[in-house]
Design a protein around this nucleic acid. Structure first.
Lengths: 172, 172
DNA sequence: CCTGAAATCCACTATTG
DNA sequence: CAATAGTGGATTTCAGG
């Protein structure tokens, strides 16, 4: 899948974006439902030019989705777990099957492969601890070679995700 | 801050939502830029009734924002760190100052307080490891009583956040 | 790549059931 | 609470630089 005879080992050639693109994404990160007109004003472009850029950012995959941020905990009791998974056997098949299993469980809302002692970090949102126990059972007994799971239960979300820092201000 | 003489220890009274509200949020979670008309169709409501519900969900804080999901890694090299912070002294002042410090650092995109050995889990997005080292220095030497920081470097995001499971399908 | 105009299409607000 | 209808405004396409 990778290009042959690469000089540098920076594998992906990055998508080119200019300052206006960054500004557009910065605005849409904070308010995805802004009208195209208002967005065009903010970035000092005509609405049609602005829309073309937005569509382009979408097709290039730089904007991958627009999502409403839901506060689930305001309507029901939830327990959130950061789970650390360690494997005993890191076969490709095991990891692949594990990924596929995780994909089927909507309670596991995020999954990262990490370096170091821990192999995976999962973010899990469940109604209660019992639901988490059931999912743990699936992960441990699924035949993926999971050695152990360490669970960190969330007490408080102090800083919620509000977007990435896209534009470097002078003085950073 | 907590109400006195509570019978149950479920402290917050949750916001009431019906099936249509859930369906609305489910749709907006997947596509926040859907037009109100199309949304109204999806939930089998007239546009005006639908819009009223959306506005209501917003003012009640169940929908807290609409955000474009940006794939930063497609336009530049980034290193993502899950950092575990342990405190030596858990004074309220220390934790409060620490929270305030984190709020000022845009590279720290999420922060959770957790139970157990670890006190905080941070998700950090930086250009390179050196930038993370600089932030670590700030956190350790900031006089917050931070004892140690364990860094987990992300190799791969296997499952990205695509929203919560809001509606219980039969058979769960 | 941009602007600007023209033709949809939509959001939002009564008004009514 | 929900549906319907009207209008001011937004989205989108297209011609032209």
């Amino acid at each position: 899948m990778s290009a042959p005879h690469e000089k540098k080992d920076t594998p992906a050639n990055f998508e080119e974006v200019d300052q206006i693109d960054l500004k557009i994404m910065e605005v849409l990160q904070k308010d995805a439902r802004i009208t195209n007109q208002a967005l065009a004003d903010r970035v000092a472009l005509s609405p049609s030019a602005c829309l073309r850029r937005v569509r382009d950012l979408e097709t290039r995959g730089l904007i991958s989705a627009y999502r409403a941020q839901i506060q689930v905990d305001k309507m029901r009791s939830v327990t959130i777990v950061m789970a650390h998974i360690t494997f005993s056997q890191h076969t490709i098949k095991n990891l692949h099957d594990f990924d596929a299993c995780i994909e089927t469980l909507p309670e596991i809302v995020e999954s990262y492969r990490v370096s170091g002692n821990v192999d995976y970090i999962l973010r899990v949102v469940v109604p209660d601890m019992h639901a988490w126990k059931r999912i743990m059972t699936v992960l441990v007994n699924g035949g993926f070679g999971v050695e152990k799971i360490v669970s960190h239960f969330l007490m408080d979300q102090i800083k919620t995700f509000k977007g990435y820092k896209l534009i470097q201000k002078p003085g950073d």
